Amino acid sequence: MTEEFESEQSFPEDYYKYDTRNFKKFLDEFANDIRKGYNQSFRHQISNIKKTEGMRIIVCGMGGSGIAAMLMQTYLEDEPIDFELANSYGISGKLTSKDLVILSSYSGNTEEVISCYRQARRIGSQVIIIASGGKLEELAGMGRLPLIKLPKEYPPRAALGLMFFTLLRLLQDLAIISDKSDEVDSLTETFTGKNFNEFGVNLSEKLNGKIPIIYSSNIFYPVAYRWKTQLNENAKTLAFSNQISEMNHNELNGFENKNGIFHVVLITTDEDISRIRKRTGLVKEILQKNGVDVTELHVKGSRLNKIFTAVLAGDYTSYYLALRYGIDPYPVDTIEKFKRDLGPFI
């Protein structure tokens, strides 16, 4: 996926001391999380949910919980369903009683999701809650609402495999999408034992001391955004993402007067249309002429395989970059302090 610099074996052993809580185990166990999420049945919990014509399916989620829904939008791009993400204090558009609102918060305490809960209950929409506990578990009990309970041992961003494939199974059990078991089984088999370490080690060396910018096509933008957020949270560094072709109309010009040292990662796929491929090639030329280093990650296969191959490549890169910076990838102290300073959500 990229040129070779050093193998994982030559990655400095003493850097692992910064991973004080073994964050890497969450990356290495991704195939198991696929199984945990997908090999469930929710038919009993959701037996009262009615599938109706014109029903909107809205997933409310932020951060690590919201990214699962963003990636699901990419995966279900070609499906004839109205699948939306609400990642703020409310659900946009006209919400009705026939709509299905899935409240997804790993902690169960995300205030934007709780705000969406209040809106959905006020309108009388159908509601399903996905959480590991917290206030949303409480509300599910009080309202006798379907609750899909997640295990508690993950940092939210590391629970992506579990949350995505739990959501996928839920949509399947609701008969909103067709059976995906063959595709999921194939992905699990592919990812069992697949080694992303070398890619992460190599690219993290390139990114060391630079500001990463991640570009992709519009349909795969949630993958680029996942890269950005993992670099933010794991390596505690600024990173940015954008879409091709949107960045061709504004951001591209900024490289004429760059005030920083950047490294651009281009995520490309065999689904990119010819004009996007041409635009991406021209972007690469312009960046290199302006002295910007570029790495291209090209992914192939089923859409599910493309999504998660690219996602895990980014997750491992952010992990190894954190260690190169002497940073523990696990805690997000600034975010946690910010939440405490906000005070309780009334």
Rank of each mutant, 00 (worst) to 15 (best):
M55G: 02
M55K: 04
R56F: 04
I57E: 01
V59Y: 14
V59K: 14
C60E: 00
C60H: 00
G61K: 07
M62G: 00
G64K: 06
G64H: 05
I67P: 11
A68Y: 10
A68M: 07
A68L: 07
A69Y: 04
A69H: 03
M70A: 14
M70C: 14
M70E: 15
L71G: 14
L71V: 14
M72Y: 13
T74R: 11
T74F: 07
T74A: 10
Y75W: 15
Y75F: 15
E77M: 06
E77A: 08
E77K: 11
E79K: 03
E79I: 07
I81Y: 09
I81Q: 08
D82V: 12
L85H: 05
A86M: 08
N87G: 05
N87V: 05
N87W: 11
S88Y: 09
Y89K: 09
G90N: 14
I91M: 07
S92K: 01
S92D: 06
G93V: 09
L95D: 01
S97L: 07
K98G: 02
K98S: 03
D99R: 08
V101E: 08
I102V: 15
L103S: 13
S104K: 03
S104L: 06
S104W: 02
S107M: 07
G108V: 02
N109Q: 06
N109W: 03
E111D: 14
E111G: 05
E112S: 13
E112I: 11
I114K: 04
I114P: 00
S115F: 04
C116M: 05
C116F: 06
C116Y: 09
Y117T: 08
R118Y: 14
A120N: 02
R122I: 02
I123K: 00
I123T: 15
S125G: 01
S125Y: 06
Q126M: 04
V127H: 02
I128R: 10
I128Q: 11
I128K: 12
I128E: 13
I128P: 12
I129V: 14
I129E: 10
A131D: 04
A131G: 08
G133S: 12
G133Q: 10
G134M: 11
G134N: 12
K135Q: 15
L136H: 02
L136V: 00
L136M: 09
E137T: 02
E137G: 03
E137A: 14
E138T: 03
E138C: 01
A140T: 04
A140D: 05
A140H: 06
G141E: 14
M142E: 11
R144T: 06
I148V: 13
I148W: 10
I148Q: 05
K149G: 02
K149D: 01
L150W: 09
K152A: 09
K152W: 05
Y154L: 04
Y154I: 03
Y154F: 15
Y154T: 01
P155N: 10
P155Q: 15
A158P: 02
A159K: 03
